[in-house]
Design a protein around this nucleic acid. Structure first.
Length: 324
DNA sequence: ACCTAAGTCAACG
DNA sequence: CGTTGACTTAGGT
């Protein structure tokens, strides 16, 4: 453990960071030094085929390593690291800001543009789910959680044309963070790892087998929960929404989830979970969104949650739910 | 050249 | 704070 393997969990599909030269140096291809505005330069571009690793956590070393200059991580990655570093696997926007500043001092002095970008990313990226605060936990802003493996299904639509599964090339170490032990700051046990991918996992722990084993309960429980939920509800949305919904795929990364913007409103009896997820319109901008509707998790209290379940648990459960 | 991912800026509620 | 859109940049094919 101690490194790449452990912390990057399934880092396989973590965007390949073009760290090293170009990125770190922010050199434009024309050779000019990139000195764009605040928060950012032309940040790294990731391979078009590599989705975000929703379980990625930051490695202390990385923070250190990149103390100077813009960190070689996309905003989506930073957000993911931040959220995964929390026990609850959810964070408020300001907490995310703070975490990023704490771990990447670069952003302390980067102005505020990057914050806008973070927000933009949260809204745009399907991987991030807004989780409503519970009444017991009032405060500003919602929580943001990660929707595990929202990507990966072979995108049948347009992307499929260009996309090939890039399961090979794992996250090339030479790209900069070969170092690794990203686990430090947050050895987060990463409960819910995207089960799907795991293409050529990064050896070690991720030997897919064990990983799945370790998390199988999630897959089972959550998947089953959702399935039964759907059954119970005999979801009306089911008709307008493609198959995926019925299965485990419920959403994540399901490009077909809603084809194009149909909203799905899933009413969940509070007796089941105390919440009701609802779909908000998906953005139209990029592929991130092109696939499925955003699901906003919103808890509805019609009755108090079971005594043995704490509010947090519920919320967490839900978060996990969303993840799958 | 074209497509897409990612970043930036900004308007708006 | 959150969403959205337009636009830019860069990398892949």
């Amino acid at each position: 453990m101690a490194d790449l393997e452990s912390s990057l969990t399934a880092m396989d599909w973590l965007p390949r960071l073009t760290v090293g030269g170009a990125m770190a140096g922010s050199i434009n291809k024309d050779g000019s030094v990139n000195t764009k505005t605040q928060g950012g330069n032309i940040a790294m571009r990731k391979s078009p085929h590599s989705p975000l690793d929703t379980n990625a956590t930051l490695d202390e070393n990385d923070g250190v390593t990149h103390r100077e200059g813009k960190p070689p991580y996309s905003y989506a990655n930073l957000i993911t690291f931040a959220i995964n570093s929390s026990n609850k696997k959810k964070m408020t926007l300001s907490e995310i800001y703070q975490w990023i500043c704490d771990n990447f001092p670069y952003y302390k002095e980067a102005g505020n543009g990057w914050k806008n970008s973070i927000r933009h990313n949260l809204s745009l990226n399907k991987c991030f789910l807004k989780v409503a605060r519970s009444k017991e936990d009032p405060g500003k802003g919602s929580y943001w959680a990660i929707d595990s493996n929202p990507q990966e299904e072979p995108l049948p639509i347009r992307q499929a044309r260009k996309r090939k599964f890039e399961m090979s090339s794992p996250y090339s170490p030479e790209s900069g963070h070969s170092n690794s032990s990203m686990g430090s700051p947050s050895p987060a046990p990463n409960s819910q790892a995207p089960i799907s991918q795991a293409p050529s996992q990064t050896l070690g722990q991720i030997s897919q087998g064990s990983f799945i084993e370790n998390n199988s309960h999630l897959e089972t429980d959550l998947g089953a929960s959702f399935r039964s939920l759907y059954k119970m509800l005999d979801t009306p949305a089911g008709s307008s929404v493609p198959q995926h919904q019925n299965g485990l795929n419920l959403g994540q990364g399901n490009p077909m989830f809603n084809g194009h913007g149909n909203d799905l409103l899933l009413k969940v009896p509070d007796t089941l979970s105390g919440i009701s997820p609802q779909v908000s319109p998906a953005s139209t901008t990029d592929s991130f969104v092109s696939g499925r509707p955003r699901v906003e998790v919103q808890r509805v209290y019609n009755s108090p949650p079971p005594a043995h379940i704490s509010t947090d648990d519920i919320e967490e459960d839900f978060t996990d739910w969303d993840k799958k």
